[in-house]
């Protein structure tokens, strides 16, 4: 990050370990949806789990595309939340109405098998590969097979432009951050922590487990390109092993 003086930017790579997406289910009703105020122009919708939040976000985008959502400037998914910021109707009544409506939605189960898919070529040769293999109880050679065989989905973005928090690993493969964060993780590092996988778009400090690298990380983020981000919320991701050194 260009500033070490971030104002307590608590996001870091610090999304909590074990904020696990639950197994798919048959859809969610209003139960477990809580709508919290976030100032006069925003609402923060909190869901029961990560999977529910992804499903709610997908439903928001679907309804917005159909023109069924009141005007909002930003829809920002988080680990277990979706923020609606820049609500055009800033009156307390307007916001309360929207809050009630959001809380009443019936949310279809998340479809992980639809939507745009991107493939990211990676080399599985990260310094934490052996530790990850040990924690997963598999051989080092099996880690790339398991990881590249997983269908990922961008749950949310943050930390830096181009960084996506990818879900898809089953809960028994979720690992904590490293006890001691590294002062410098190179651009392109392929990493795991908690429920998430991600690729560092630029060099930065970081505490995730490094299992490999994307040889050409410039493809993750290019503001001169349309779209600027390879990974935006809802996009499906597959990692393709370009070469494995063991």
């Amino acid at each position: 990050m260009s500033t070490g003086a971030g104002a307590g930017a608590g996001t870091g790579m610090g999304a909590s370990a074990g904020a696990g997406a639950s197994a798919g289910s048959g859809g969610h009703t209003g139960a477990g949806i809580e709508v919290l105020p976030a100032g006069p122009g925003a609402l923060l919708v909190e869901l029961s789990c990560g999977e529910h939040a992804e499903a709610f976000h997908a439903e928001l985008l679907r309804r917005r595309a159909l023109g069924e959502l009141p005007a909002v400037r930003e829809i920002v998914p988080g680990a277990r939340t979706v923020l609606l910021d820049g609500i055009a109707d800033r009156t307390p009544d307007g916001r309360a109405r929207l809050a009630r409506e959001l809380a009443s939605w019936r949310i279809p189960a998340l479809r992980r098998d639809t939507g745009e898919t991107v493939e990211i070529p990676v080399v599985y040769d990260g310094p934490d590969l052996a530790d990850v293999a040990a924690a997963w109880g598999v051989t080092v050679a099996e880690v790339p097979r398991i990881h590249a065989g997983t269908e990922f989905r961008v749950a949310f973005c943050g930390f830096a432009p181009g960084f996506g928090y990818l879900t898809g690993l089953p809960e028994h493969l979720h690992l904590p951050r490293r006890a001691t964060p590294r002062t410098r993780v190179p651009a392109g590092a392929l990493a795991l922590a908690g429920a998430y996988t991600g690729v560092y778009p630029r060099p930065s400090p970081g505490g995730w487990q490094l299992i490999g690298r994307m040889p050409e990380p410039g493809g993750l983020w290019n503001p001169a390109r349309e779209p600027a981000a390879l990974l935006s919320p809802g996009v499906r991701v597959r990692f393709v092993a370009a070469e494995v050194r063991s």
Partner: peptide, 12 residues
């Protein structure tokens, strides 16, 4: 003010 936005079926 405590905003009127809060709404939901959660237990809180």
């Amino acid at each position: 003010g405590r905003d009127a936005g809060r709404s939901g079926t959660g237990a809180t």
